[in-house]
């Protein structure tokens, strides 16, 4: 028996919205400790990793580990039928399930919707990601990071991110010209202004803005985002989801000559 009930179903809707442009199908692994998922985009440039802890669910039961192979597009179609205030329950009682049941219930418990989604058998492409001590970690407003990436992508396809002890600089160079946005360390009380820089070693790395803009679809999951960088390593962009877990995106850098 597997059953997972989310009090705030809208979080699940937001997670699926955040990844649906990046990945088409995913294996969700359910275990006693919670749900996890890892998937790459078709070009194998970016990777998305989701972890949801059992403690963050209103009810959670998973008697034995199961893998749920899902089409994100089809999952998205079913989740459109859930209201933003609904609870969402995922359920299957089969050992090797061919479908996953969904229950959506509104706050007054006066409306209950029930759907079943056919599951797929997908090859697992799970990569081992070592625990990394990143040499530059930037925590800032997710909306501000999203705005910077969107603005710069009209000038260039790539952005160079350079850190120093005091600031982080986002630079672009395109056919029409060049520019940069520098964001300084700022210990403001307001989330929207706050910028936390933890810089052991400055880094300078270049990334494709197209992917960063896709990651920024997760902006509604968290008011802050953390950018984790080390030279010669993929960027790790993390959105923490309250008590539930985290959504992480990994992006391989561009290599300048």
């Amino acid at each position: 028996m597997f059953e997972a009930k989310l009090q705030q179903g809208v979080i699940f809707k937001k997670i699926v919205d955040a990844i649906k442009d990046l990945v088409k199908s995913v294996n969700i692994d359910a275990s006693t400790s919670g749900l996890s998922m890892q998937a790459m985009d078709s070009a194998h440039v970016a990777l998305v990793s989701l972890k949801l802890n059992e403690n963050g669910f209103k009810d959670y039961r998973c008697d034995r580990p199961i893998t749920l192979g899902l089409s994100i597009e089809n999952l998205s179609k079913i989740l459109k039928c859930a209201g933003n205030d609904d609870t969402i329950t995922l359920q299957t009682d089969e050992e090797e399930p061919s479908s996953l049941k969904f229950f959506f219930e509104n706050q007054q418990a006066s409306k209950i919707s029930e759907f079943s989604l056919n599951l797929m058998s997908l090859d697992s492409e799970s990569l081992g990601i070592p625990d990394t001590d990143y040499s530059s970690v930037i925590q800032m407003s997710s909306a501000e990071f999203s705005r910077i990436c969107k603005e710069l992508s009209s000038i260039s396809e790539t952005v160079e991110i350079e850190t120093s002890k005091e600031s982080v600089k986002f630079s672009v160079q395109g056919d029409i010209g060049a520019g940069s946005i520098t964001v300084k360390n700022n210990q403001s009380d307001k989330d929207v202004d706050r910028v936390d820089l933890q810089i052991d070693q400055p880094v300078k790395l270049t990334f494709a803005l197209r992917y960063l803009n896709m990651f920024n679809k997760a902006v509604s999951l968290s008011s802050t985002v953390s950018l984790n960088m080390s030279e010669e390593n993929p960027l790790m962009v993390e959105y923490k989801i309250d008590d539930l877990g985290s959504l992480r995106f990994y992006l391989a850098p561009k290599i300048s000559d």
Binding site: V45, L47, L127, G128, A208, P234, A252, K254, I255, S256
Partner: peptide, 14 residues
């Protein structure tokens, strides 16, 4: 354009 690395250049199959 700068060459784009792949995520599989850094992380291997688990």
């Amino acid at each position: 354009p700068d060459p784009q690395k792949k995520i599989t250049d850094y992380y291997k199959q688990a």
